[in-house]
């Protein structure tokens, strides 16, 4: 019986996030190495998790030589400083060809910028995640919520709750004019029942509509699904 080779994951930053990540990954039997610059912090992680800590600067090539970063499948840069997380990912990708890099975002305003760079595959921002929960929790948001960005294509997955006054209430999907490259993927009724949309599916007030759209078409899509019917003038 052949077993898949064990994934080797490098974590840059042995603070709270790095420590708990390492712990979870070790428990899930991944091969893990934590790179931590501060000797006291490095020791603290090693005392708890054993000999999986390398004391050094996770942005320095010589440290990555020692860490064997070349054979790593993934690098998670999770320090409390965005500039260090960015450079760790860039060094890992550019000099050591690591397949996948994940950067922790401390200042949410940096997220879009990081995503634009080739060396950062995934960004994770606690602030953005919490904000998204707050926005989703609001009873009637009159805007569109971005759920997921499909990297590379410029497309994103968004959620819209259909307001009572919307022009699409009572209309079937084939009659709705959507912006370029936009598509309704799923309709969830107020009862929580998901429906795969067909041309004849009728949209009702309070339906949750999950759609795919281009980032630049967001506003047009919002208009198409949420705006009241145009006022007729004769």
């Amino acid at each position: 019986m052949s077993k898949a080779p064990r994934m080797y994951i490098i974590i840059v930053g042995g603070g709270k996030v790095g420590f708990h990540l390492a712990k979870e990954l070790v428990e899930a039997s991944y091969e893990v190495l934590v790179i931590e610059q501060d000797p006291v912090q490095a020791r603290a992680v090693a005392d708890d998790l054993g000999d999986i800590v390398l004391e050094g600067d996770g942005c320095e090539a010589s440290v990555h030589e020692k860490a064997g970063t070349r054979r790593a499948n993934m690098l998670l840069a999770v320090t409390g400083d965005d500039e260090d997380n960015l450079v760790a990912c860039q060094v890992a990708k550019q000099l050591f060809n690591v397949e996948r890099t994940v950067a922790r975002i401390n200042n949410p305003k940096n997220e879009a910028f990081f995503r634009r760079l080739d060396e950062v595959d995934i960004t994770v921002s606690a602030t953005s995640a919490i904000m998204a929960h707050i926005e989703q929790g609001l009873p009637t948001t009159h805007h569109l919520i971005q759920l997921l960005e499909l990297k590379g294509s410029g497309l994103e997955l968004v959620e819209v709750r259909i307001p009572e006054e919307s022009r699409v209430v009572g209309q079937s999907i084939k009659g709705i004019l959507l912006p370029y490259q936009s598509m309704i993927c799923l309709v969830v009724g107020p009862d929580g029942q998901p429906k795969v949309p067909a041309p004849d599916t009728v949209i009702y007030a309070d339906d949750e509509v999950i759609a795919v759209t281009l980032h630049e078409s967001e506003e047009q899509l919002r208009e198409a699904l949420m705006a009241p019917p145009p006022v007729r003038s004769f």
């Binding site: 942005c59 500039e83 960015l86 450079v87 910028f113 760079l117």
Partner: peptide
């Protein structure tokens, strides 16, 4: 700081 310098430079550029 090297990292600060290159991050700011990339923000300025991109």
């Amino acid at each position: 700081g090297d990292n600060r310098n290159v991050m700011a430079a990339q923000m300025a550029k991109h």
